[in-house]
Nucleic acid binder design. Structure first.
Lengths: 209, 209
DNA sequence: ACCGTCATGTAATCGGTTACATGATTCT
DNA sequence: AGAATCATGTAACCGATTACATGACGGT
């Protein structure tokens, strides 16, 4: 078999678009946007502009085709071509080895908290903990809803499995985050107690002197 | 107090550079690179080129100063200015609300695994699990080393706390990831068993017919 | 002296983000 | 009819990634 040109291999965004179109069939960028928002979008931001600009790129590579609507909202509808499907499958056949990219502004702030005010770490951790708790409970609510829909089917968990999985990864991450930030807060409390004690002792010494 | 121009607020990379310089004192981009590699770099990639191009940007904003070395390797040494420190502190005083960005190629592949071969999910999960196990044990080893260094000091955990923290977040994340991917593999095993059983039954029926 | 790796930097490209802008629908 | 939101798109900027390229240093 002749080896396919690697088409300067595609970005993860490309595969996202390719995959969604393969699964959902012909869609508009707005459709893509909604699907993303409901799944990966929870912890991996894909600004809507991306989902408008990426498909045309893929059309240029012959991995998609475009159908323009004539009246009403002249939206652009995209579909995968055979080549597109092939590219997607080829990618799926090569398990990725790239490490996870975990970018978190709060974590960066905590990392430098010692350079800020004495309360910096505490306030950062408080904020982060609050945020993660909110997201965690949102996920848990979504999970319950999902269960309600899925369980009645009984047995075969073949349908909408992918959806539950991103949900589950999000859940596990948020739990880890909550644990982490709680730990930070606890540490801070300990540290504060310690300095309080030290100060008290110091004051005592000063008074005695 | 007159409110500082927001200096078209800075990117996270800017704060990384600002913070490292504030903590470590005057450094070359290469110094920065090493510090990053030993801490955040584990799960947040900062290509070295960034650490060479970002400081000049900050110099232009008067947040850093540059000292050029004359002979030997004419390296560029950067230091924070008072304005730089101020910007850093101001940022630390505003706890971030941006959500975590969790970008993972493996997760994306899993999300679309149903569109690939029947073995796709399994091989993706196997690969990911292996990767995460490696990183997890690397973190654990590093944690032990860290403890060896830290514990003897006894009492006050004021030193090198930041380092342990990124380590800890990495650890918790990797544990979550290992749990996740193990779960995926288990699911796949169940699913395969089910289809095997179904096929066996089917074969049986065919033979009896 | 040579080789390998460490160290240092620059340039070009390209994808992602922000910002802008406007057209449809729906609801009141 | 008007407001609000949904839906749709474009363009410019800028940061990040890649690739290239070379200089110093340490060991043999």
């Amino acid at each position: 078999m002749v080896w396919m040109m690697s088409t300067t291999d595609l970005s993860l965004t490309s595969y996202l678009v390719l995959g969604l179109l393969a699964r959902e069939g012909p869609s508009t960028p707005y459709d893509l946007k909604r699907h993303v928002a409901a799944t990966l979008g929870h912890f991996w931001s894909f600004p809507h502009a991306l989902l408008y600009t990426e498909p045309p790129r893929l059309v240029a590579l012959c991995l998609l085709t475009e159908t323009a609507e004539v009246h009403g909202r002249r939206r652009r509808i995209f579909s995968v071509t055979t080549a597109g499907l092939e590219a997607l499958r080829a990618w799926l056949g090569r398990p990725s080895q790239e490490p996870t990219e975990l970018r978190d502004a709060g974590l960066l702030q905590l990392f430098f908290a010692d350079l800020g005010s004495s309360q910096a770490a505490r306030s950062i951790a408080t904020e982060q903990l609050a945020q993660h708790l909110v997201r965690l409970s949102a996920y848990e609510a979504e999970e319950r809803r999902e269960d309600d829909v899925t369980l009645p089917r009984g047995g075969g968990q073949t349908v909408a499995h992918w959806r539950g999985r991103t949900l589950r990864m999000g859940l596990l991450y948020e739990r880890a985050a909550v644990e982490f930030w709680s730990g930070v807060l606890a540490d801070e409390d300990l540290a504060e107690e310690a300095t309080d004690r030290a100060r008290a002792q110091d004051d005592g010494a000063r008074i005695r002197a």
